[in-house]
Design a protein around this nucleic acid. Structure first.
Lengths: 179, 179
DNA sequence: CTGTGTGTTCAAGAATTTTTGAACTTTTGA
DNA sequence: TCAAAAGTTCAAAAATTCTTGAACACACAG
C-alpha cells in the first residue's frame, strides 16, 4: 500500500516523465513546456495555460497568438483564452511591436510578479469570502444546543485563527519571493 | 469584460454561496462542510474530501465511516477513500474507541499539522522532480545554437533560482503556521 | 467600401476526475 | 467456526473541466 489516492495526476501517455507529446518543438522548448505544464497542474490551471507560458518563457523573442497556437498544436480558441488569462494574471505581457500587424507576447520572468499575480487572483478572493463565512458560523454557534456551544465556539474560533494566519501569510510570501 | 477565465469553479446549484446541497445536516454542520468544500477546491482536492473533513471538524464527537457516509449522503466507497486520504495526510486521526465495533475518526485541528501534511504530500514531490528537470534543461541549453545560448542559459538559471526560493519557502511556511 | 489578417466568443464534443455500488476481504462476537 | 458488521477495492457511470472550431467582431490597407 504505497500509492496514495488523489496524489498522482496521470500524465497521459509518455513513459517516465520524458518531454511529452509536443509536436514541432525543439527539445529544449518541449522540456520547458513540459515543466510548466506540470507546474500548472500543481496550481490547478489547465494544461494549455502551462504550455503557453512555458513556450513564451523559453522563447528568445515574443510570439504571436498564431505562432503559439501553431507551435503547440492547440486551437486558436485555446491560445486566445490562455493568453488572456496569463495577461490578466500578469504572467505575460504585450511586447513592444515594431511594426507588425499582430500582437506579440513575452513572459514575465520575475518570480515576484508572477507569484503575487497568482496569489492575488486565486487566493485573495477566497480569503475575503472566508470572512463572511466565519461570521455566519459564529451566528450559528450561538443557536446551537447549550451543551455543545462551548466546544463549538472554540472550534470556530480556531478557524478564525487560521484565517488570520493565512491572511498574514500572503504579504510575507510575496516579500520572500521578492526581486 | 469582468469575468476572468478559469477563476470561477461553478459551485453547482445553490444560489449565492449559501450552505448548499447538504441533506440531513444541522445548519451549523452544513455551513462548516461548505466552508471546507470550498477550501478543498482551492487546493485541488475532491469535494468529498472537503465534506468529510468539514463534518469531522465541526463534530463534537468522533464519527464512524458509516455515520460520515450517511450524514453526508455519499457512498461508503467515497467515504472510505476520503477517510483514507485524510488519514494518510494527517488531517484526521482514529479516535480512542471506547468499546465500539467501528473505527471512529476525529479531525486534527492544528493548522501546523494540517498544512505541513499537505505540503509534504502535495508539494515536496514536485520540488524533487523539478531538480531532474532543471538538469535536463541545462543539458539541452548546451546543445542550443550558439547565438541563443547565452539568453537561454540565463532563463534556465532563473528557473534554478525559482526552485531554490520555493524549496527554501517550505520550512518557512511551516514555521509560520506553527502552533 | 471591401477583403484579409487578427483576435474573441461560446456551444458542443473530448478528456479527465470523481463518485457510485456491488463484490470482496477482514474483523468481531457469540 | 460462523454470521453479521465494517471496511476496501475497482470498474463503470456521472460530473466536471478543458479544448475545439466555427461564427462573429474589429481594424486596416487597398
Amino acid at each position: 500500500m504505497a500509492q496514495i489516492a488523489y496524489s498522482t495526476k496521470t500524465t497521459t501517455g509518455t513513459p517516465m516523465g520524458m518531454p511529452s507529446s509536443v509536436g514541432g518543438l525543439a527539445p529544449l522548448e518541449a522540456e520547458a513546456v513540459d515543466l510548466f505544464v506540470g507546474l500548472a497542474q500543481v496550481v490547478g490551471l489547465p494544461k494549455s495555460v502551462g504550455q503557453i507560458y512555458g513556450l513564451l518563457y523559453i522563447s528568445v523573442e515574443p510570439l504571436s497568438l498564431d505562432a503559439v497556437a501553431v507551435r503547440l498544436d492547440i486551437s486558436k480558441g485555446s491560445a486566445s483564452q490562455g493568453l488572456k488569462f496569463l495577461r490578466s494574471t500578469g504572467a505575460i505581457r504585450l511586447a513592444e511591436l515594431d511594426g507588425s500587424r499582430s500582437d506579440r507576447y513575452e513572459a514575465e520572468t520575475g518570480l515576484r510578479a508572477l507569484a503575487s499575480g497568482f496569489l492575488k487572483e486565486q487566493i485573495e478572493p477566497h480569503l475575503e469570502s472566508g470572512e463572511e463565512r466565519l461570521g455566519r458560523l459564529r451566528r450559528l454557534v450561538a443557536e446551537a444546543p447549550a451543551t455543545q456551544r462551548k466546544v463549538l465556539a472554540a472550534r470556530v474560533d480556531r478557524l478564525g485563527t487560521w484565517h488570520q494566519r493565512a491572511a498574514g501569510m500572503l504579504p510575507l510570501l510575496i516579500r520572500f519571493l521578492g526581486k
